[in-house]
Design a protein around this nucleic acid. Structure first.
Lengths: 263, 263
DNA sequence: CGAGAGCTTGAGGCATCTCAACGGTTGTGG
DNA sequence: CCACAACCGTTGAGATGCCTCAAGCTCTCG
């Protein structure tokens, strides 16, 4: 039975997972269950919080502000654990939802701690994965705080590409991405309208296309340059992305570009 | 000797720390050393990464982008551990620096894991603190992504206030804050100029004053309303009313002591 | 006494938001 | 089978929040 394929691949980027370790891993989680698109994921239970391993499909977590705006916290793909951060907290401060149909497994604090005790080696790999995912949030902070909308989007796509490749999804040319523009916009602190315009820039510059849930990276080198993408924070070997490149000092002015095109 | 006062207070918000547990904690860290303002904090060593417990003083970590702009990741106060996230990563992706003179203790992965093994109870408290600090980064993401500059700043001040109170700093009226406006601006994804204007608004609205490193909250209720501040994510009891210490800084000053000793 | 850093204010520009509109697709219930 | 709602993607026009550039002040430190 093919259980925990994605998680195993992810952890293998840190240390090899032996068959018996994989069994141990599996027994730490609850049984798989299927969720429909848009279905809500609840992290709160009577006895503490609960996290979820995404075995398959896409999900995300977010916060809603009093004024109704939404900020997406993480995009979770296969092999990711959503809500791990909440396990030791007494109160839950975010909500989750499915993007696509997906297969999830529960993880409780008890299960997680039992895993740590049973195998420090696998435990270390899980902690590594958690630390890496923290790094993703930190990089998103840098994105939103200090990068332009166009750079943010480019950076986001490159990151997603690397993450997907790590768990065996996507290929050297691009990847499937079921995220809607509103969700991506709320991830990057933009409006869907503006994100859409940035997408047009990426398309007309022949860097990326994104249609029908399929992202194609047309010019990887220029995209990396544009985004100022340095994959160090992913703590993984770059997969199908060349190493580092000199970064552009001057970022193309997207608005001028749009004006020129429409004139 | 008064070691780990702040950390002990912080952890006590999760579970009581017994004297022998405190000794164990102390032995998990390196010896205290003093750093000067602006001094850089390096997380990389030959053998893996190293984190730092702030015993006293203020520090922060940040990333610099290719275009020279800076994004501050965390502001660390007494009792915080800077760089904990990096311990299990193979590559370091950020830098640290002191704001004030401060007293730090090293923490290695080995020390951290030994602590976990020696006392699961204290280990759990440390993990709780780490999860809570993750929550701070997440809330910063929401700040920068979806709140206006004024709200961001107000939210930041309220958060800082709560954090400081948790480790026994500040009082019911405000707190000492040695952060410069450029540092706060780089934390909130703003320019120092604009931050300054927002500060003026808070002042003229009679919500907050911030002069000579002293923040006074003049109208807590309105400030909370303005910021849309919901302290759930801090996972601590709100501490704005109880006035235990009429004086501002109650953590004993060991800097002078250490300076005298090393001289 | 000069250099560097922080704080403050003004004026103008532009990146992004808001409001508005339209077409396509999907799902649903009459 | 059609009507309708809900959501998404796309584009235009105008408004604005924040940035950039510029300047002057204070304070500390060497």
């Amino acid at each position: 039975m093919h259980s925990l394929v994605a998680l195993t691949r992810k952890l293998s980027a840190y240390s090899a997972i032996e068959p018996e370790e994989r069994k141990l891993l599996t027994s730490s989680f609850g049984h798989p269950h299927v969720l429909a698109p848009r279905q809500e994921i609840c992290f709160e239970t009577d006895a503490g919080q609960r996290a979820y391993l995404i075995e398959e499909g896409w999900a995300f977590s977010y916060k809603i502000l009093p004024n109704g705006s939404r900020q997406v916290i993480d995009i979770a793909i296969a092999g990711d654990i959503l809500g791990l951060r909440l396990l030791r907290l007494r109160r839950c401060d975010m909500v989750g939802a499915m993007v696509t149909t997906g297969v999830l497994r529960d993880l409780t604090l008890g299960g997680f701690e039992a895993l740590m005790r049973a195998s420090p080696r696998v435990g270390a790999a899980m902690q590594w994965a958690a630390s890496r995912d923290d790094g993703l949030v930190v990089e998103r902070l840098v994105d939103i705080g200090r990068r332009s909308a166009l750079q943010r989007f480019a950076h986001f796509l490159l990151e997603l590409w690397q993450r997907l490749r790590l768990v065996g999804l996507g290929d050297a040319n691009g990847f499937r991405c079921p995220l809607s523009q509103p969700v991506i916009a709320d991830t990057l602190g933009l409006t869907a309208i503006h994100l859409n315009r940035m997408l047009r820039v990426l398309r007309t510059e022949e860097l990326v296309t994104f249609r029908d849930g399929l992202v194609r990276i047309l010019n990887r080198r220029k995209l990396i340059e544009l985004a100022g993408f340095d994959p160090t924070y992913l703590d993984q070997e770059p997969l199908q992305i060349a190493v580092r490149h000199p970064v552009l000092d001057v970022v193309p002015n997207s608005i001028e570009f749009l004006k020129a095109k429409s004139a």
